[in-house]
Structures are given as structure tokens and as C-alpha cells.
Nucleic acid binder design. Sequence first.
DNA 1: CCCTTTTCACCTAGGTGGTAAGAT
DNA 2: ATCTTACCACCTAGGTGAAAAGGG
Lengths: 176, 176
Amino acid sequence: RRMFPTFQVKIFGMDPMADYMLLMDFIPVDDKRYRQVMPCPPCGAQYAFHSSSWLVAGKADPATPGRVHYHPDSPAKGAQWMKQIVSFDKLKLTNNLLDDNGHIILNSMHRYQPRFHVVYVDPRKDSEKYAEENFKTFVFEETRFTAVTAYQNHRITQLKIASNPFAKGFRDCDPE
Amino acid sequence: RRMFPTFQVKIFGMDPMADYMLLMDFIPVDDKRYRQVMPCPPCGAQYAFHSSSWLVAGKADPATPGRVHYHPDSPAKGAQWMKQIVSFDKLKLTNNLLDDNGHIILNSMHRYQPRFHVVYVDPRKDSEKYAEENFKTFVFEETRFTAVTAYQNHRITQLKIASNPFAKGFRDCDPE
DNA sequence: CCCTTTTCACCTAGGTGGTAAGAT
DNA sequence: ATCTTACCACCTAGGTGAAAAGGG
């Protein structure tokens, strides 16, 4: 499924006439597997779900194939990338290790850090030699998240129902 | 609206590593304006519509702005263009002279010839000088058509209902 | 009379969380 | 008990011709 909210960036400082590739990948935040805690068993599922928090459940599962998502407009000129916010709304996540749709493969119940990479398309013939200096990586720690197959927290569910247009069918109240 | 059927081409002979832009435009086939003929007035509209044919109605209206439609994947490498059929399914036509959606503007009741252009993206600094030799134009006369705002022939209507997936709601019979 | 515009029901295509069943 | 899968109703977004209304 899509990642929501979508990762978006505003870019400055590119060479307007040069070509760039924009891409994202995801690295594990730690070597842990998480699980839900049910702090108040007799109360029933509802309360526990609301107040849920993450507990370490052990060591991480084997790492998934480290796939990469190229922004579909790549390659494009710096001027094109800079003139508006770049949105990675086509990026999709899956837990299916055998996925053949090119989606990003993650382990459920593990924490991930999205990364954003800018690659300068070097016009020189021996451009491979300069690969090291032709890309830059940006990490925004506030975008870290725990991958799940089903929501573990009602506030996350409500936040998504409130803000994702495709979940409009589940809204109770005001249509702002 | 979209042009249907979609203009599609299979490309051979490009340099797999070079960049190309693919685009289309539309030129008038002649300097005429057409109109419907109603060959059998007392019979009512139904029969006349079925057997309709085009009559010259006079000289063409003033030419519309000669817009161009770039294939949205442009620019891309020759290898990319050649590995599958290229489909211009995002191309849209309009009769609105004030259109600001970048659609191709045509005069209704006029005949047009679609043209397909391949532009080699010349990496040389003085590439403008070679513009003349860096593109090639292809014309398929079987793609000529008369632009209309409403269908003038039931067989065209039925052909489109039968073959355009979005018109499935109007099909009477077999769902092949 | 002939053509154009507007609106509409009905599609395609695909993104939501809910829910029940399945797996461990 | 906890997590995953499969399916679903309900959305967004937008491409169809029909039909009625509008224009010259």
C-alpha cells in the first residue's frame, strides 16, 4: 500500500540546467522487533488498543531486500524539480518478500527511517568514477515510523481517516 | 476529450543510449469546412444519421493555434522508447480556442492529419544549429479524421461503444 | 436546421479502513 | 493472544455516450 502521509520535499540549490535523479529508500532504525502491549487485560480490547504502546519483542527479523524507489519523473532538470514541491505519492510499501511490483519491502513490526537521495546525472563519459561525489542523502528523523499490517492505535487510525481523502467514507463528523 | 482510438507506435532504430523527445501535432488535411448531409428529409433523423456522409460546406475557419503534445515520458533513452509500444493516451483534443490545459486545439467539422515527431536530444552545446537534422516526422495517412463535437454516424458511435472500456455502460450485447 | 454546450448515469481504475477468517 | 490475509463497501478521480438545452 501507499505510504501516508506522503513524503514531500521542497528543493533548492540545484543547477537548473543539469539532470538529477531523485529517489528514496528505507533503513532499519534499530535491530529490534516490536510488539503490542495490552496493559489491562480484564478491561477488554478497546481500552488497551487506545493506550497501546510499543514493546521490544526481540531481535529483528532477517533484513528485507534493500529496494529503492525512483521518483517517476526522474531524470529531470534541476529547474523542473525546484519549481514545485516534489511528492513521492507513487511510493508503495509491502511486506511480501516475493513482491514483483517493485514496491519497497519492509518487515512488519519493525521501525524504519526513510531516506531521500539526490543524484546528479554526470554527463562525463567516465561518470562512474565520480559516483561518490555525485549524490547527496537527506534524512529527516521526524519521518521515522513503525511498519504494521493493521493499525495498533486508534489515534493513528483517526488521524488517517481525517486526513486521507480516500478514507472519507469512514468519517463521522465535519467535512473540513 | 481524449482521442480514441489512441495513437500508438512501435519504434525501431534509435540509439539505445541517446535521449529523445516524442511528440505529436495535427495539421489540416485541406482548406475546407464540412457539414452533414440529410439525404432523405421526410424519413426522419434516424435513417439520415445512419447513412450520413460529409459534404463540403465552404472554406476552412481560421486556423487554430498549432499546439504540440509531448509524450509525458519525454525525454527518455532510445532503449526505453523501443522496449514497448509507445501510447499517446494522455493526448486530449478541444475546440476551445481559449483552452489553458495545454490540449490540442482543433476546429470542429474540419479534417486533420496527426503527425508523429521524434527529436534527438543533441548533447552538443550548439545543438540549436543542428535542429534541422535532429528530428524526423512520420505521417500515417490512415489516421486522418474529421473533428466533431457530437458523433455524426451511428457506426462510429457503435464502434467506440464496442471498443472503448469507458463506454461499457452503453453496450447491449456480448462482453467480449 | 445544424451544430455546440452542459449535465448526467454509468463505467474504469485504484486508494481507504473495517471485518472476519486464517496462521502461528 | 497476537499478527496477517483476503475481501468488502465506500470513497477519489476521471473517461464514456445520451439527452436536453442553447445558439446562430
